[in-house]
Design a protein around this nucleic acid. Structure first.
Lengths: 342, 342
DNA sequence: CTGAAAGCGCTTACAG
DNA sequence: CTGAAAGCGCTTACAG
């Protein structure tokens, strides 16, 4: 073992009691300590390279200075990092460290994670899903605050931070309508989820507000992948009055729209405009032309969730919003052009 | 605060001393406790839902049960998750939890992270770079073991776990040569790094072994992005004796190869075969045809690094390899075909 | 076979 | 203005 420096070592060197060292280093408000003593303590601590043992402090204060970040699948998505990064930066600024556990969605691991993190005395739990879903609210240790990230529980009893799906879809439609498109198609997945419900609502509302056609013939559902996007876009493009623009549920589905267009000799954006969702940069950037997309605010969501959790950690009875919707952002690349003058 | 159950509560309920509870629950080897007593203790613990306070235990045993995972940029890459996942699963199996900090590569944050994690009494530090690089070895708290992940320090004094770049490049060449290609080009980035050095060495060695041409005219360097890949591939394809197959330094550069081929009316794989590197699934899967690629073993690397670190945590003088190279894997999609019969 | 005591390294009333 | 004592919740020798 290394010769760890303890508070008593600092006290001895400064010629004071450990309690005085503690008061000085923690800048305890009520503490009356002569300036010269403070100076001596600080210097002794510096010279010895003293750093307090967080375990001992946590045991005594009942505050571990750690938060749990539990997520289902971090592994395959490029977004997860941003979520964690946002949460971490916020936690960090408040003097907290993140303990991260990925459960792979396995309920057995989930409950073990909760148990282990409880033992670690985490001050709060961030529970993240890697795509906006409704989940059964996990049950953290009694008294430990919980915030859901990119997830909602059925009851709404647990505070949650989610993307504003509806506003995102509205922005996508606005982007296309502003370029003169009137027949705007929507290609989406088959699952019912807050994401598809919200985006569908936004799509319809945005069209209705502008007096643009809201038709079933402009909407097609398929699997949530590029093959699905190709299939669904093909259905729309082969109809008698095909859309001149398509809003795709995800960037992956948008790739399928590109393929469907190419197969029909349609150029993007001259003959068909496309907007995706997710802003999966590694993909959207590489398409020709680049895919305009609606970016989900993962970093901001991480920040918001951590900030909310920290408020609850400070004060378990703090009033926090049940659901916070974080704004999306339009990322323009090159897949949207003026509507063909037909 | 919630009514946390302490070991003394369990002891009282079971009618024994706390030390007996500790001995039973931790299955201390030398402890002689009657079976009936053990049973009573276990039952009392169960009934009360007892879970030991890791802070108190860690303070006493000087083992926190936590490892640090410090990385530069987790945010933008889809690989990071696998690295963390591998490390976490291994740590977890050994009863350790990961504290994760992303530094963004900022040296000030790096040293603060090290300091904070030292206070948290982490048992060891995993230091990850998100692409194989040589870094100045960080200085963790005296006595805390350190393992580099996807990174090497200049001196080789710190154990490190890296991908086997050379074997990966060999596998790429083998994949192409096995399809009858003889003129195999290589498109790589401009930076000198262990990744480019290793892949270049593997490329050349594999060609030489097979008696295939190793020519400067078959190699082109450019920026490490799709535009760079397009530029470099264009140079090769416009030469008098163009290659019939191209090995690209990354999947992103491979996308550029696709574009360069398309611009010249070359079909993949009929006229040109392509192999990428990284297996960036979200991209490689979406190309037409799908891009065959060399997968980096991120999950395995995370596992190996954590296992190595845990050995050092158990025994600071354990003999561990200075550098462990983890094998890559060939992922076949559809971008490799037989060499044109010319 | 089991319990009492000490101590890990802090912070928090409290005494002076 | 500062120090001595107690205690956070465990585990580890040691005594019996």
């Amino acid at each position: 073992m290394s010769p760890r420096v303890r508070i008593s070592d600092v006290a001895r060197r400064a010629g004071v009691a450990p309690s005085t060292v503690s008061a000085v280093l923690n800048e305890v408000s009520g503490a009356r300590v002569k300036d010269s003593t403070r100076e001596r303590v600080r210097q002794a601590a510096d010279e010895l390279g003293y750093a307090p043992n967080a375990l001992a402090r946590g045991l005594r204060t009942r505050r571990s200075g750690t938060l749990a970040f539990i997520s289902d699948v971090i592994a395959t998505t490029p977004y997860a990092g941003q979520l964690i990064q946002g949460a971490q930066d916020t936690a960090w600024a408040a003097g907290h460290v993140l303990m991260v556990v990925n459960t792979g969605g396995d309920p057995a691991i989930e409950s073990r994670a909760l148990a282990v993190l409880r033992q670690q005395q985490v001050a709060g739990v961030l529970w993240a899903t890697m795509s906006h879903r409704v989940v059964p609210a996990p049950v953290p240790p009694h008294g430990t605050p919980l915030v859901l990230l990119d997830a909602q529980d059925g009851t709404g009893a647990v505070p949650s931070v989610i993307p504003d799906e509806e506003a995102g879809a509205r922005a996508a439609v606005a982007e296309l309508a502003d370029h003169g498109h009137r027949r705007i198609g929507f290609v989406l997945d088959r699952e019912d989820s807050p994401a598809s419900d919200g985006r569908t609502a936004g799509y319809r509302a945005a069209l209705a507000e502008r007096g643009l056609p809201v038709e079933d013939a402009l909407v097609a559902r398929a699997r949530s992948c590029s093959a699905g996007g190709e299939e669904a876009a093909g259905v729309l493009l082969d109809r008698p009055h095909p859309p001149t623009a398509i809003f795709a549920f995800t960037d992956q589905m948008a790739v399928g729209v590109y393929h469907a267009a190419a197969a029909r000799g349609l150029r993007i954006p001259e003959d068909l405009s496309v907007v995706g969702f997710d802003d999966l940069a590694v993909l959207a950037q590489e398409l020709r032309p680049g895919l305009s997309s609606i970016a989900l605010p993962h970093y901001a969501m991480g920040q918001t969730a951590a900030a909310t959790l920290l408020r609850l950690v400070e004060d378990p009875h703090a009033e926090v919003p049940a659901v916070q919707r974080v704004r999306t952002r339009v990322v323009r690349r090159g897949s949207v052009g003026p509507a063909p003058s037909a």
